[in-house]
Design a protein around this nucleic acid. Structure first.
Lengths: 279, 279
DNA sequence: GCAAAAGTGTTCCCTTTACACCCATGT
DNA sequence: ACATGGGTGTAAAGGGAACACTTTTGC
């Protein structure tokens, strides 16, 4: 690669940011890390970091995911011997407003990861702590408003009320203000997840390798924030070809009658789709 | 903004590339420009260019769109006095494989634009000519294969057969090989358009301000590459609230009985969606 | 027995589909 | 008259919503 010639084009820093979603205790949660340095020192932020010289975008995202969670995502572009434990990783959108980082011009390629319920996260990189935060706590109740349809940049502070000097703000009642434009990125990621579980089998990425129909239903209920009819859900999900395959055993970990265990089937697209109830 | 410190992060060039789609003579077409310089000199490529120092990503995409086509897209982030002639512009995906440009490390934020049938394109920038090319000619018949679901990078040359030294290749029988990874970008853009007209009113972005139900149906037929029942299509589309509003007049430009003219209604999401027939 | 969760059966209703049929214009 | 595209009616088939009911565990 020829040396960098600053007269030919303006130099940018390129980062990847991660929206890692999981379902914990019936709530949709995302991984946030506490910033150890300015700007936004002490505030919660999405995990992320610089893309390296010789790395592609999905590789950088997968590397950050491992560093933050230990998860190995399935990356179709990676060479075969990559142990995937089923986590899903896809590109979400790119954010590049000129003033989004006061230090320099940064373009961030956000990625969306879906993970089963994990043990406590391990902190890493420039963060001095990390946790799973309910998205409702970070975005408020009205996450459905911004449909993330139009061009996904330059919307300003967005949904989370950015209340001034509250560095390190937490447990103050209102939503916690994320650093940078991360509230918008998170909202876009949540909206993507809510849409995709309608017409794809991605909801299984929130489940352990073997799971019951009831556990899968509770994933849909947590992500969409609605209650679903267990009887119709069961019929629909077991009747959709390729969605679920019986794993053989049963479990009684939820109480009540033992439930059959399933694994995710080969299908990725659901036809007909799961229908999200009206608001 | 502080001065650039090359020790802090690797410098990237950031560009926007445009997938501009339109329907011409019953075929889905995209705007391509001929490259005037190496690499890929003489080959067709998607229009695009560097993002400027003080410009956000959607602003750069809108600027390129004006430069190449004269279209003013509706950008929700732009200040009010922007004349929009109805073209749709949204971010598509970002491509950043380390070797995608042999000259330097380039990350390209691709955007998707949908436009009504336009007069001949005006060439601009570093291209010495431009044209509307049927996507079938650029991608071959099997565009449906790559569903563009997974991480959208590092898939190599992709669908278009990259046949070696054929610089400036055209009208050779097989598909014309686009420069860089533009065949994949185009395939992802086409797939996005095919999906979005199912559940949104975006198909009207391919139509002039006033149009007939038959013209709208021919848009769906061209984008999906299928034949639709004109009777059921009419009932469906006029029965979906907010999709179409009567414009008052009639036209006979298609021959046969005069057809009512409509304008796009306020709705952006279609409920229930238009159903794409099975393959 | 009782509570709780897992499944199954059935009925109603709405949407889609296929196609017969009529309407209004140009040649 | 006839071809061409526009628009309405209608009946059969399929899928979703609502809910009564049975099954199998733990306490």
């Amino acid at each position: 690669m020829p040396p960098y010639d600053p007269s030919a084009f303006p130099p940018f820093a390129v980062t990847v940011d991660l929206v890692v979603l999981t379902v914990r205790r019936h709530a949709l949660c995302t991984l946030v890390v506490r910033r150890g340095e300015a700007p936004y020192q002490g505030r919660w932020a999405l995990p992320g970091g610089f893309v390296r010289e010789d790395e592609d975008l999905s590789g950088a995202a997968a590397r950050e995911l491992v560093e933050e969670t230990g998860l190995c995502a399935h990356d179709p572009a990676a060479p075969p011997p990559v142990p995937s434990n089923g986590a899903h990783l896809e590109q979400l959108a790119t954010y590049g407003a000129p003033d989004r980082d006061p230090r320099m011009r940064v373009v961030s390629v956000a990625h969306l990861a879906l993970a089963p319920d994990l043990p406590a996260p391990r902190a890493g990189g420039d963060a001095n702590s990390a946790r799973w935060a309910p998205v409702e706590e970070l975005l408020g109740e009205d996450v459905l408003a911004g449909t993330a349809e139009a061009i996904g940049v330059a919307h300003g502070a967005g949904a989370a009320g950015d209340s001034g000097d509250m560095a390190g703000g937490e447990k103050q009642g209102g939503p916690v203000a994320l650093a940078f434009d991360h509230a918008r990125i998170l909202a876009d990621g949540v909206e993507r997840a809510r849409s995709k579980i309608e017409y794809s089998s991605l909801a299984t990425a929130f489940c352990p390798p073997e799971f019951t129909v009831g556990e899968l239903r509770r994933v849909y209920e947590a992500v969409w924030g609605v209650a679903l009819d267990p009887r119709n859900f069961h019929r629909k999900v077991t009747g959709t070809p390729g969605f679920l395959v019986p794993a053989g055993g049963t479990t009684t970990r939820q109480g009540g009658r033992p439930a059959q265990l399933f694994r995710a089937g080969g299908a990725t697209l659901l036809n007909p789709p799961m229908l999200r109830p009206e608001v």
